[in-house]
């Protein structure tokens, strides 16, 4: 097990290098000159374009520019955005907030999702099962921007229960986290339900029931536990997705998060910004995935990591 962890940590090095190169190259390949549009509908002075191009190494061939970027990165220099702000500063500002938001959203999706999935799975075809199905459909077909705006207008502006936009407090992130977690919640609930339904039919559950264990204990300890592996996997993957993919929710609630940083970086063709933000994301994600893999063994003792 210890060796396995060390191995996995070792694998992070090539993945991080590969990812940084991949991202840097993709941003590089974006069509259009990032500075040509700086002057709105009129062409920019060539001298300005040249100065900026040189300043951000965009006139070097890709491998050279990448090496320069990595060289700086190793010495702790994350570079600058095109407006001269420090990328490292932005990362330090945005990651903590995004991390809070993501963890809250995960808590929402895990707690409510598992509860809903168990209730739906115990009595398949029952009222609760159908309720969960309908909720899933609602969440899937209402785009997140609609859900977010409705929640903001109703609970923020009309009822005043939550701050309308983020003010830096943890409480102001609760409503966005619920909106953010809602779609994943549907996935979790349905994953739990599906696996629970399957597992309730298995031998060991029958055996357990035959042994005279209470229904609660059978479901809680035996069936649910064995149903959790795909759920844990999904939540792990979702963690990464929510970290970088919360652009819409961040926008609606004016949260200065990482999703927005990546989005703006892509639009502005800022290789340094996108690469740095994504690299941190990959690191977080690799660790979460390692934890997920280790959790498999906890959930199902038959699984061993060699």
């Amino acid at each position: 097990m210890g060796r396995y962890v060390v191995q996995r940590l070792g694998q992070m090095v090539p993945v991080v290098i590969g990812t940084t190169f991949l991202i840097y190259a993709l941003v590089w390949a974006l069509p259009g000159d990032p500075f040509a549009a700086k002057c709105g509908d009129r062409p920019c002075p060539q001298a300005y374009v040249d100065r900026m191009t040189a300043e951000y190494n965009l006139d070097d061939p890709l491998p050279l520019a990448y090496l320069q970027y990595m060289g700086n990165l190793v010495t702790g220099d994350f570079g600058q955005t095109f407006s001269g702000a420090s990328v490292a500063g932005e990362l330090l500002q945005r990651y903590p907030i995004t991390l809070q938001l993501t963890v809250l959203a995960i808590v929402v999706e895990v707690v409510i999702g598992i509860a809903a999935g168990v209730l739906a799975g115990i009595r398949r075809g029952g009222f609760l099962d159908n309720l969960v199905l309908v909720s899933t459909l609602v969440v899937v077909s209402i785009p997140v921007f609609v859900l977010g705006l409705l929640a903001q207008t109703f609970f923020g502006v009309r009822l005043g229960w939550f701050p309308v936009t983020s003010d830096g407090t943890l409480y102001s992130l609760v409503l966005p986290a619920i909106v953010l977690g809602s779609l994943s919640l549907a996935f979790v609930a349905r994953l739990v339900r599906a696996n629970l339904v399957e597992n309730l039919r298995t031998d060991y559950v029958r055996t357990a029931i035959a042994k005279g264990l209470t229904r609660q204990r059978v479901i809680g300890v035996h069936a649910l536990r064995n149903s959790l592996i795909p759920v844990v996997t999904f939540v792990g993957a979702d963690f990464g997705g929510l970290l970088g993919g919360a652009v819409v929710v961040e926008g609606i609630f004016n949260i200065p998060g990482v999703g927005n940083m990546i989005f703006r970086g892509i639009n502005a063709h800022e290789g340094a910004t996108v690469t740095a933000a994504v690299t941190v994301l990959v690191l977080v994600f690799l660790i979460v995935n390692l934890l997920v893999d280790l959790l498999y063994a906890v959930i199902d003792p038959r699984i061993r990591h060699v």
Binding site: Q7, Q11, P14, V15, G18, T19, L22, I23, L26, V27, A29, L30, A237, G240, G244, G245, I262, F263, I266, V274, V278, L281, V282, F285, L286, N289, V306
Partner: peptide, 26 residues
């Protein structure tokens, strides 16, 4: 499992890391 898993899983990680918007625009 083993090496095959390591290779494929880490490849998956790298693909996962690319923002959907960036990949789609490209």
């Amino acid at each position: 499992g083993g090496r095959v898993d390591a290779l494929l899983s880490r490849l998956t990680d790298m693909f996962f890391a690319v923002p959907m918007l960036l990949g789609a625009i490209i």
